[in-house]
Amino acid sequence: MTGADPLPAEFAFIARHFRPLAGPGALDLADDAAAFAPPHGRLLVVAADAMVQGVHFLADDPPETVGRKLLRVNLSDLAAMGAVPLGYLLTMARPRDLGEAWFAGLCDGLACDQDTFGVHLLGGDTTVFSGVSAAPLVLSLTIIGHAAPGAILRRRGAQAGDGLWVTGSIGDAALGLAVLQGRLADPSGVLADRYRLPQPRLAFGAGLHGIAAAAIDVSDGLVQDCGHLCRQSDVTATIEAEAVPRSAAALAAGPHWLETCLTGGDDYELLIAVPEVNNAALHALSARCGIAVTRIGGFAAGAPAVRVIDPSGAAIMLSRTGWSHL
């Protein structure tokens, strides 16, 4: 190959769209792997999530928000572990007819959130569906973070007597999907925005060491993710449905949307088990971060299960508990 030879199409595509996102460890996206050292004395924390067109985002969602949501849902996994983000890897399988303008928008969104959250692209892979009709866009992001040894939050650790708390509000994202599908009105645009742009609670998660006994982010539905805490901790939980915080827009949708709020997913709030002795510290953290936190129930001894109750204490029967990946 001579100096005048053009870049192969794949590498030209990467140079146009993704090289501007690369951080120092990415080696300018010119080698087979990234190379970087984690901060001294810190543990690496790694997670991965995929988003598939038509499953996790809509075909007409703006590409900027698709990129930002992809990064944010992975950052939320770090928040649930109390970790600090460091960088990410991005892999995609794309339909051949998805144009350059779409990927320019995707990368604009990623660039915006890289500045917001202090992370950079470290590398990845791209491929094109060939000979496959109506293939969806598939995006997968691997997030890399770090945490102090002994400070990582786990799903395991909740005990009988702990309170069950949640950040922010629940149900907006599931209702936002209903809005974008034409099943619900959203005059303010709040609900659709919550579906497209989750808010990873990184500062709050990083401050939970010594306060929370266990934590998980609410990605697949409040009730279902609470069940993960119960199974990992070998306890039972009660959720008081009326205590679950819902935004003004969610409440305006009406009481028949309550089950959707409890089970719909995509909220990316933190669900936390907190010993009662730490309640004051939790409220202090809430004030420092400017993020509301609400007690929605508690844990008790018993076989792993989640019970949802109404104000009278009667069990609410749900048709499902959350999203299934299978």
Rank of each mutant, 00 (worst) to 15 (best):
C107E: 07
V132T: 10
G109K: 00
L122V: 11
A101C: 06
L121T: 10
G99L: 09
V132W: 02
A104F: 01
L141T: 06
T127A: 15
L137R: 08
T127C: 15
L121P: 11
C112H: 11
H120P: 03
V119G: 02
L110E: 00
C112S: 10
G150L: 09
G109D: 02
A147N: 14
D113A: 08
P149H: 05
F117A: 05
H120E: 10
T116R: 14
L110S: 02
T142W: 00
T126M: 14
A104Y: 01
D115T: 11
C107P: 07
G124I: 09
E100M: 13
D113S: 11
L110P: 02
L141K: 04
T126E: 15
T116I: 08
R96D: 05
A93P: 04
C107M: 05
T116D: 11
C107H: 05
P136K: 10
A93H: 13
L139T: 04
Q114M: 08
L106M: 12
T116N: 05
D108N: 03
P149Y: 08
S130I: 07
G109F: 00
R94C: 11
P95N: 11
P136T: 08
L141Y: 01
G123Y: 07
A151S: 15
A93Y: 04
Q114R: 03
H146T: 12
A148P: 03
T142R: 06
F103R: 08
H146G: 06
L141A: 13
L141C: 13
L110V: 13
T116Q: 07
C112E: 15
L110Y: 01
D108S: 09
A111P: 04
D113T: 05
I144R: 05
F103H: 15
T142F: 00
L121M: 14
L106S: 09
A148Y: 05
L106K: 10
A147H: 12
G145I: 00
P149E: 05
H120N: 15
D108G: 03
S140Q: 14
A151Y: 08
G123D: 10
R96N: 08
V132K: 06
A134N: 13
A111N: 09
G105E: 04
G145V: 01
F103I: 07
T142C: 08
I144Q: 08
A135D: 01
A134D: 15
T126W: 11
H120L: 05
D113Q: 04
G150D: 14
L137H: 11
E100W: 12
V119F: 00
G99T: 09
I152D: 02
V128S: 06
I152G: 04
V138P: 04
R96Q: 12
H120R: 15
G105H: 01
G131H: 14
H146C: 13
G105R: 02
L110T: 02
P136R: 12
A101W: 07
L110I: 15
V132H: 04
E100S: 14
G105F: 00
G123E: 10
S130N: 12
G150Q: 09
T142P: 03
S130H: 15
L110K: 03
Q114T: 01
F103W: 12
L110C: 07
I152K: 06
P149M: 03
R94G: 13
V128I: 15
D108R: 12
G150Y: 11
V128P: 02
G118I: 01
S130Q: 15
G150W: 07
